[in-house]
Amino acid sequence: MLKLLATIASKPSGALGLGLTLFHLALAVLAPWIAPFDPTAQNADAILLAPNATHLMGTDTLGRDVFSRVVHGGRLAIAVTFTAAVIATLWGGFAGIFFGTVGGRVDEYSMRIVDAFLSMPWLLFLLLIISIGGAGPLTIIPNLGFFYGVAVLRVVRGAAMQVSARDFVTAAKARGEALWPILTREMFPNLSDILLVEGAMRWSWMLLAFSSLSFLGFGATPPTPDWGLMVAQERGLLSTAPWGVFWPCVALSSLIIGINLLADAVGKALGLDRATAVAV
């Protein structure tokens, strides 16, 4: 593990990715101690102040400190999407390995169902579910996990098909091993790298998706500090007070870029090519 991190950090892009990701994680954890103001505290005397010595990133329409809100703004998004990414990777990964190993009719029919899900405009679908089930994390996490898991499934199944065609799997089948040991002992160790990279990639995409939901008013609920929500609230003042939109955007994109670079570097360090790892 340490060796893997060292390999990742040995290239500038890997070091940047690792640095950005760790920076954001640290920021999220330490937010209450870093933020100078309460992120939800309104101040009628300090509305729409430009960045200055007290308010490093200025204030928003309700006089809240943008810096404090940006520092806190990743907490919910990271927690929700990370949990959802773990769920997506686990179920999508397991199902992908299963279908890729079993093959035949079972695989063929299941993949048509997967195709159906992949062809759905899932953002709209998610909006529908949330408007029925409510906007809490308990609705969003399983749904993000499910929808992104379908894509993980598709990618991992493709990779699993290649592994299951190799002689050592044939040898295990010829030996008469049951399905479970073949899945866990022969297949999984050869796919864990792809799962790791795939999980990281899906995580970064989910962050964008969660922020989009917040922007549309279906993710975080006011007055929670959240990057997507902040952009939505301040977007009308983009020409006069751009700082309220600019800084949350910087935070969100730097985290997504960081995770992407990290996933790339992990893939390269493990000898995978992103082009083959992420096909969908």
Binding site: R166, D167, F168, T170, A171, A172, A174, R175, E177, P181, R185, E186, P189, N190
Partner: peptide
């Protein structure tokens, strides 16, 4: 029992020789 043409492909690269023989 069968012995395969390509030992490279017939041994799981992620298993130690011990694991391979004990299966």
């Amino acid at each position: 029992q069968m012995i395969f043409q390509n030992a490279d492909a017939s041994l799981n690269p992620r298993q130690s020789i011990g694991e391979i023989l004990m299966a």
